[in-house]
Design a protein around this nucleic acid. Structure first.
Length: 898
RNA sequence: GCGAGAGUGGCGGAAUUGGCAGACGCACCAGACUUAGGAUCUGGCGGGUAAAACCGUGGGGGUUCGAGUCCCCCCUUUCGCACCA
């Protein structure tokens, strides 16, 4: 083995387990030695994991969500990347042209906070963190194509954010509007939601956060609302959970807008600036004859008008607003106690001319629908609860229709919210069925000018302005003469200046830099002011995976042809916390890119996998709980292979993982067993031997071969979709256990010792509990050297996606010369995997009474005959009458007796 | 309140289609090897019993020859949420 400099890595063991390498002829598996050796080999070959640019192979794009460079890798990362890395290696071994890149989501608030706390410039802090994390990732051995690395905070990337922004603007999809933000009067700056703690500024505990309206840039994602919703149906490779969440997030709702005029006959004076009409949104216009009040959100403009002349109402309304805000803060807006205040005014139901009271209620939200509803207590839960509390009239207008004629037309228990019913007490519409009534009544409202059918979405346009420093500058100029002017494409990128003292900045940091703010208008050449807001970092992550396909393109965000080859992403892997925002923005961005002709795919991601959290002692790992497990420490103590193998073994990847330090030791033991087995059994001329495996093996060897092929099947099948890598690794462990027993038995045979055997004199089982057919020789038989060569080779291949360091080492020990990643994934042979004998449980009345061993191809007649002849079965059915015999091929026999 | 998950030995988990509950690993116990063992190898290991019977997948019902798995009700717990009209 070549010598190498491994000082940096190998020394790490010293603070872990005591060093025992002083023992002579040590056969101990030393992960530090093995991993240091391969680490330096891999590091010296930057092309090792490079995707092939012009390949005729089938492509496979596997991607893990890019991390924020906090400076330290945590176990959640290790788990996420171990899943993707295993898949990438598996696909390489299956002959695919694999794209497996990595990058850095490197703009964002923490860099500015670090700047404030440690006085480190954000750029320096960020790039330093990236360097640290890259070392950690490489040490664990993740197979990334670093030549395509994307760092979003560098101008060669963010210039294309700016370019995209200009395209959005060009197409009328970027616009400005006033929007409410959190404002700290002490910092004179905008706060992110996470910077607001219990209504106060995180840096000034004594300062209440205010709400301010600022002009901000928005992207018109709502234009794509319908398509984003519709195309969810195409995403068959996504978890249903995520699709449901996105569906609810988009929140399409078909309904009707209906105008209720404020009543003139009232004595109160004229109307305020909000006018005299309350437009409500309802999905159930068929219930409008049951409307007994109109409810307004406390922040509705008409409420402001009404309250202007009524200080008492104003105070009550303010109280409702406060309740809403508080509920929102503590996150239980759904459990708010319903409160309302009558305004004293009335509105007219346009369908029957009836006057109904107008209320203000805390359960009506200003930013959904029109911020006003018609209240139909008989047919809506919330309205019912409200009406009961405030003694508002409840009027039944729908009767349920049921298949049961008795039930039909019976008065339902209230509220009846079903929409399979018939209208009553509804004038000309009485007798109509609900859905027909909705159509008819919507049309009527529209014809008479007091309403129209409409679709509302819960989805809102994407506000991308951030009043912060560490982000992509929005490429816009404000000229006194020409107004809002986009920066010309040729002037991109607008470089984020670096000579800035964040800690001293007051208000929006960039606005304090005259050399940044002062610009020239490209239209008139006169003075212009530069936009000082930067972009939301979700912009960066919305399209970065396209940049990977062509990371160094200077003339475009990427080459369309190249992207078309790689897209869609075959498998995307990340945390469930990104189920909504990142994944919906990414889909939106792709659709926009398609519409401006950059790409042809409608959706960016074919399959999505969401992995579970890593928890410790029943709680999410966090600094405050002190239950952090550091990957560096694990790697130093047990090696990278053990750390990644354990992160896959401890739980199915889509479930939360309960980290147990003791568990990883078992993994290390297993790796040691594999290592020592190969150390003992590898023969220099293995490659010749493999071809010489006899077709006529003795029973013990046949059983090992069978176990091997069963294992290949189990591991391969899981890669095809189920991804329960924990059971894959179990399967490989089982194979290893069987090999140890086989080896031991063969050694006994060789020296003529008695075989270890079970008391029954039956074949030696692989393990005492082995539920499957016995593995191991029933007669002493020497180890089949050729078979062992074959098994070892396949074993190493099976292990390669999960424990690459050890796999490479063993590969070399077996005398293999070629790159393990280019070696073919082993294929299982169904005939070899098939059991020769089956153990069939025999049940009497569903209770296990005996087990019989039969040839795998035994007929039903034979098996039933054998089952009935069985001693224990005979005893159990003696004197009873056999009612039924259940036979499930390959599974069991159940005899029903009376 | 709504939506989506989860609940199986001392612990992490397995059981892929309704068919032997507890694979694999940890911990623990025993034996072997050893000057030594926190190394290694072998075996044991749900409760219960001398052995059986029997009991056992959060609780209660049900369907079925047969239920961890399907149905109904309930409890606990995790995650998400925006009372969505």
């Amino acid at each position: 083995m070549p010598s190498h400099d491994n000082s940096e890595i190998a020394t790490a063991t010293k603070n872990g387990v005591p060093d025992r390498t002083d023992r002579p002829n040590d056969d101990r598996y030393d992960p530090q030695r093995v991993e240091a050796k391969w680490f330096s080999r891999w590091q010296s070959d930057p092309q090792l994991y490079a995707a092939e640019p012009n390949s005729t192979k089938k492509k496979y794009y596997v991607l893990e969500m890019l991390p924020y460079p906090s400076g330290v890798l945590h176990m959640g990362h290790v788990r996420n990347y171990s899943i993707g890395d295993a898949l990438a290696r598996y696909m390489w071994m299956n002959g695919y042209n694999v794209l497996h890149p990595m990058g850095w989501d490197s703009f964002g608030l923490p860099a500015e906070n670090a700047a404030i706390q440690n006085n480190t410039p954000p750029r320096q802090w960020t790039l330093g963190n990236i360097a640290k994390m890259k070392v950690q990732m490489n040490r664990i051995g993740f197979a990334y194509d670093w030549s395509r690395e994307v760092t979003t905070c560098l101008p060669d990337y963010y210039r294309w954010n700016q370019w995209f922004f200009l395209k959005f603007y060009e197409k009328g999809l970027a616009y400005r509007k006033k929007s409410r933000v959190n404002w700290c009067p002490k910092c004179c700056t905008v706060l992110a939601n996470e910077q607001v703690v219990k209504g106060r500024c995180w840096r000034h505990e004594d300062t209440l956060v205010e709400q301010r309206d600022l002009e901000q840039w928005f992207l018109r994602i709502t234009k794509y609302a319908d398509e984003l919703l519709r195309d969810l149906d195409k995403l068959a490779g996504w978890p249903e959970k995520v699709r449901t969440m996105q569906r609810n997030w988009i929140g399409r709702s078909e309904g009707t807008l209906v105008d209720f005029k404020l009543d003139y006959a009232e004595k109160h004076s004229g109307f305020g600036p909000a006018g005299s009409t309350i437009t409500v949104f309802t999905t159930r216009i068929d219930t409008i004859f049951g409307a007994t009040s109109v409810q307004l959100a406390p922040e509705h403009p008409i409420v402001a008008d009404l309250a202007a002349a009524n200080p008492e109402l104003r105070a009550k309304v303010d109280q409702l607003i406060a309740e809403q805000r508080k509920a929102k803060e503590v996150g239980d807006i759904g459990e708010i106690e319903k409160h309302g205040v009558p305004t004293g005014r009335y509105a007219i139901n346009p369908f029957n001319g009836e006057k109904v009271p107008v209320w203000v209620a805390n359960y009506i939200l200003i930013d959904y629908g029109t911020g006003a509803i018609m209240s139909v207590p008989a047919h809506d839960d919330r309205d019912y609860e409200f009406a009961k509390k405030y003694k508002v009239e409840i009027r039944l207008v729908i009767l349920p229709i049921s298949n049961d004629p008795e039930e039909t037309m019976a008065e339902p228990s209230l509220p009846y919210i079903g929409n399979e019913g018939m209208l009553i007490n509804s004038g000309a519409y009485s007798g109509l069925e609900c859905s027909a009534a909705i159509k008819k009544m919507s049309a009527f409202a529209e014809q008479n000018g007091f309403g129209k059918a409409t679709i509302t979405y819960r989805l809102k346009d994407w506000g991308i302005s951030r009043q912060r420093y560490w982000g992509t500058p929005i490429p816009m100029l404000y000229c006194e003469k020409d107004g809002i002017v986009p920066v010309p494409e040729k002037d991109l990128p607008v470089i984020l200046p670096e000579n800035i003292e964040i800690a001293l900045a007051f208000g929006s940091p960039l606005s304090g830099l005259p050399e940044f703010v002062n610009a020239t208008c490209p239209e008139c050449g006169g003075p212009a002011r530069r936009e000082t807001d930067t972009m939301d970092t979700f912009v960066d992550s919305s399209w970065y995976f396209y940049r990977y396909t062509d990371a160094h393109n200077y003339h475009a965000p990427f080459d369309s042809k190249t992207a078309q080859y790689w897209f869609p992403i075959d498998q995307y892997i990340g945390g469930i916390e990104h189920a909504i925002l990142h994944l919906i923005y990414s889909r939106f961005w792709s659709k926009f890119m398609r519409d401006i002709g950059l790409i042809t795919n409608d959706e960016p991601i074919e399959r999505l996998f969401t992995q579970g959290m890593v928890i410790k002692d029943g709680a999410k790992m966090s600094k405050s709980l002190g239950n952090i497990v550091s990957p560096d420490e694990m790697v130093a103590r047990y090696g990278a292979d053990a750390a990644r193998l354990y992160s896959l073994f401890a739980a199915p990847p889509d479930r939360d993982l309960d980290w147990q330090d003791a568990g990883i030791e078992g993994i290390q033991r297993f790796l040691g067993r594999v290592y020592r087995f190969v150390l003992r059994n590898a023969k220099p001329d293995d490659s010749d031997l493999r071809r010489a495996v006899s077709t006529d093996l003795p029973p013990g060897a046949r059983a090992i071969r069978r176990k091997l092929h069963q294992t290949i099947k189990r591991v391969s099948d899981d890669f095809q979709g189920r991804w329960h890598f924990n059971t894959c690794i179990s399967a490989i462990m089982e194979l290893m256990n069987a090999l140890y027993v086989y080896e031991e038995a063969a050694a006994s045979a060789h020296v003529g010792r008695a075989l270890p055997s079970t008391s029954s004199g039956q074949a030696l089982p692989a393990t005492a509990n082995s539920a499957t057919a016995p593995v191991g020789p029933s007669q002493p038989e020497p180890a089949d050297v050729a078979l062992l060569a074959e098994v070892q080779r396949d074993l190493v291949l099976l292990l390669a996606p999960f424990a690459p360091y050890l796999a490479h080492e063993l590969w070399e020990m077996l005398g293999e010369k070629g790159n393990l990643l280019k070696a073919s994934w082993p294929q299982y042979d169904a005939a070899l995997a098939k059991e020769e004998e089956l153990e069939i449980p025999v049940q009497i009345n569903g209770k296990l009474r005996s087990k019989i061993v039969v040839p795998a191809d035994a007929s039903e007649e034979y098996i039933l005959e054998r089952a009935l002849a069985d001693e224990k079965v005979q005893a159990a059915i003696a004197g009873k009458q056999i009612v039924k015999k259940i036979f499930v091929p390959g599974k069991l026999v159940n005899i029903v007796v009376r």
